[in-house]
Structure formats: C-alpha cells, structure tokens
Design a protein around this nucleic acid. Structure first.
Length: 460
RNA sequence: GGCUCGGUGGCAGAGUGGUUAUGCAGCGGAUUGCAAAUCCGUCAACGCCGGUUCGAUUCCGACCCGAGCCUCCA
C-alpha cells in the first residue's frame, strides 16, 4: 500500500498515516451545535472529512467514523428560551435539518453520531476521574480542569501558559486557580436544563463531551481527530488535556484541521453575520455543485466563497458529465480505485485540486479520443476517481435534465419541439429552426446539435 | 501585546531548487446552416529586499501586506 501523507497539526508537518490498528481505523470529527442552520463554512469540514472517510474506506477494511451532535449548550438554551420551548425541540429540529443538508452535499452518514445528552454519565465519570488524578478541582459549584497539572498543556495550539495570560481579554472568575483553567462541569439554575451530579445539579462544559464520547465509542486513542481550524484552541487543546490526563497515552495520532470559507477575505461566521446557509444555497444550486466548490481548494487553504466559485463549479461539473454522456454506451470497466490518478493525488495530504486536475485530464481524453480502450479507462477514472471525491455518481442525462422549478417545460414538450426543429432543418427552414431554439433558450433549455442528433440540457 | 498561517498569471487554485499544473476568462484556429458543446494553438505569475547556491517562485533572514486564534465559532 502506498504511503498516505497526512498533515498533523500537532507536529506541524505531513506524516505518513500509520493507524494503530489497520483492521479498524478510528476517526472523530466535531459536529454541529444544533441551534441554527448550518452555513457553507460549517459544511467544509463535513465534505472534507467525508472525502477522507471515503479515501480511508477504500484502503482499510473498517473505518469507524464518529461525528457528534452537541445537543446541550448555552446557545441552544438561549434559542429555546427565546422560542419558549424546551431545548429538545430546538436540537431535534436542527439535527434533522443538519442531516438533510449534509446528505444533499453527498456526505455519507457517519458510522456513529453520538449525542452529548446521551453521554452525561460518561462525562461525570470522566470528571470524577480527573479529580481523583489531581487534574481537576471543584470550586463554587463548578468543576475546573487545572491546566498547570498537565505538563505540555498548549502543545497542540503552540502556546505557553504564560503567553495565554498576556492576551487574556476576559475577566477571570475568582474561583479559578489559574486563569487558563476551564470548566468541566457547571451548575444549572432551576430554569436551565441540568443533570444530577456529585457537584449538584448542573451541565457539562463544552470540551467534555468529545473526550467522553470518543472514549465510549472509539477507545482510548484514535487515529484521526478532525475539525475546523478555530477548534484548535481552546476546544481541541482542552479535549486533549482531558483525555490525556484521564487515560494517559497519546489520545490522537493525527490532528487534522481545515481552513475556513471566507467571505470577501473575512471568515464566514455566525458572529460576523456574513453567513450563507446551506439551506438557502440548495435552492439555487445542486448539492453536488456546493460539494465540488468546497473541494476545489486544498482543505488547509482558505476558500474564498462567491457566486463565481459556484458558477465555475457548475460549469466544470457540466463538462465532466458532458464527457460521460458522450460515452453512456461504453460499459464501465472494473478499475481498482488505487490505480486512479485521483487516488494518487489524495495520497498527498488529500490534494483535491490535483485530483480535480486529473478529472479534467480524463474528461479531455473522453472528449477527443476514439480509442475504445482509452475511452473505457478515462470513463472509469471519472466514475471511480469521482466516487472517491463523492462526485459524478449521478446519471449524466439526469444531471442535465434535472428540473429546478415546477413551471419548467416538461421533457415531452421539449422533445416535441426538438422534433419540429429537426424537420425544419431537414427542409432547410433555418429561420423556423432558430426560432424554436431561441424559444427553448428562453425557457432555460439549451440545445446541442451533434452528428447523432440533438441533445438538450437545462441551464444551471 | 502573545501565538499561528498565508501572499503564485485578469480571476480561481496546485506545485517545484533548474524543464508551461489545472480550470475560468481573453486571443487565434478547427468544427457547425448559424450556434452550442468539443478539440487544437496562444498570452500571462510566483509581495519586497538581502543571503545561500552554478542556478530560487521553491531554502534562510529582514521588511511590507493580509487572515486567523488568544471569547462562542467549522
């Protein structure tokens, strides 16, 4: 098996991926806090790690992929109180919407989707253990992790304890022994959701759930832990502290973080108010277009989001599907995935732009050659390599003819007009033929005349 | 202030110590009744200043600019 080189945030360099147990790969990716619609920036890690999941699944017999749902959090409590309902109703609604949106992007369902509220017991147990080991203390109804108790705290985000104090912009609660200490458990008021614990009725801190759920579902150490770049600190740093101090060992083999989707050079975020939700984008673009756009830059590079990006993605997919449509009759040969150029590109830290370049090469081959062996090989590259990226799995005809609105012309109506135009052309009545073509174009239907007849597609 | 990361042709976006990534756009051509699609050709880049080197966009250093984290955040 060829080496797969994957960047590790902890070391700051690409490392050969060497799983702890090649028979069972474990990957955990931080999922959503379900209090609102997911935006296209939230979708980036989903698509990136879905791609990684597909790539690993092609190489190893079992890949356990867990993506959590954070269904207890102060933001959810907030949203619920504004609506005057329970947090369950908010989190249930947005969990469903999240799953719909991510499915539309072609993301496979993770092996496990653990919910935070179903793991409170494990979180309490983990907290007790940290206290017993001298890494945590209770104070003023809270339980806090003592960062000074961990040698090497800060290694993931590359900071030292002293540096963190220098830039502290928030006032430090006086019950903390060290300003960097973070909450494992906090008290709930009567109106807030809470669970009984040795420290009274309360709820878990943000970082605790991931440590507890990883332990419960994947084991003490995992191969890959992923998420967006902004999770490095404090979330992953603290998660690492919790798990390493509770169970010892390395906890995570590869820390993998994706860069952001930018809006006019700034990151897209709910707090900046410049978000585009997946939901609204889906009304205008097929999910595959959004997916392609998200894969068009390397996952560690920022991706500038724009209408041009999406328009370009649509056009490129048209090119690929057009090449496939030219050869619908050619049977798909059984090309082993590891022999595709897409696979080879992904071997280098998931280089999706290079993989897409390989797809372009295959499409060009398909468009120009008449050699049946080359055609079969190129078609397989597009289908199999595309599959690795979660792309190009639709039927080409369906791709071009998919209707976006109820008032579109039906396929039958279009076919009838094409017949009429064909007759006009045969009689060299080009004025009438062009009239029909223009009329169809006004309805968003484009015609392509070829040696074997006329094909049509809807404008994207 | 501390800590990170980045600055590639008109745009998007890979990569490399010496030989044009790729795509879009542009230009020229082939093809077409005209188009569209497609194909061929073509233009064009590595922030700035030093250093290392036979040779640097690629390594090192300074500088300028941008982004991010340090607070919830993919």
């Amino acid at each position: 098996m060829a080496d797969f080189r994957l960047f590790n945030t902890l070391s700051g360099s690409k490392e050969v991926f060497t799983p702890t147990d090649p028979k069972r790969i474990t990957m955990y990716v931080c999922g959503p806090t379900v209090y609102n619609y997911a935006h296209i920036g939230n979708a980036r890690p989903v698509v990136v790690f879905d791609c990684l999941y597909r790539f690993l699944s092609a190489q190893y017999p079992e890949v356990v992929y867990a993506r959590n749902i954070t269904d207890i959090d102060d933001k959810i409590i907030h949203a619920a109180s504004e609506r005057g309902c329970g947090i369950e109703s908010v989190s249930a609604e947005f969990t469903t919407k999240y799953r719909e949106d991510m499915a539309a992007l072609g993301a496979l369902t993770p092996t496990i989707e653990p919910m935070a509220t179903e793991h409170i017991e494990e979180m309490v147990a983990l907290t007790e253990r940290l206290i017993a080991e001298g890494h945590a203390y209770s104070a003023d109804g809270h339980v806090l992790f003592a960062v000074e108790s961990m040698p090497g705290y800060g290694a993931l985000s590359g900071r030292k304890l002293d540096d963190m104090l220098a830039g502290a912009r928030v006032e430090v609660a006086d019950y903390k022994r060290h300003p960097g200490d973070f909450v494992l458990w906090k008290p709930s008021t009567d109106s807030e959701p809470g669970w009984d614990s040795p420290w009274g009725r309360g709820r878990p801190g943000w970082h605790l759930e991931c440590s507890a759920m990883i332990r419960a579902h994947l084991g003490e150490a995992i191969d890959i832990h992923g998420g967006g770049r902004d999770l490095i600190f404090p979330h992953h740093e603290n998660e690492r502290a919790q798990s390493c101090c509770a169970y010892g060992g390395d906890f995570v083999r590869h820390w993998v973080h994706n860069a952001y989707v930018d809006m006019d050079g700034e990151k897209m975020s709910k707090s900046l108010g410049n978000v585009r939700t997946v939901r609204e984008l889906r009304e205008r673009y097929p999910g595959e277009v959004l997916r392609f756009a998200l894969l068009s830059a390397h996952y560690r590079s920022p991706l500038n989001f724009s209408g041009d990006l999406l328009g370009g993605a649509r056009g490129t997919l048209d090119t690929f599907y057009g090449a496939l449509r030219r050869h619908v009759d050619v049977p798909l040969i059984d090309l082993p995935v590891e022999r595709t150029a897409v696979y080879a590109a992904l071997l280098d830290d998931l280089n999706t732009p290079e993989a897409i370049a390989a797809l372009h090469a295959a499409a060009t081959t398909l468009n120009k050659t008449s050699d049946q062996n080359e055609v079969a090989r190129a078609k397989a590259e597009l289908a199999v390599g595309g599959g690795l990226l979660g792309l190009l799995q639709a039927d080409p005809e369906a791709w071009f003819k998919a209707s976006s609105g109820a008032d579109d012309l039906s396929a039958d109506q279009i076919d009838a007009l094409i017949e009429e135009r064909l007759a006009a052309r045969a009689g060299r009545n080009f004025a009438r033929a062009d009239e029909i073509r223009d009329a169809l174009e006004e309805q968003g239907v484009l015609l392509d005349d070829g040696p074997d007849g006329t094909q049509w597609r809807r404008r994207g």
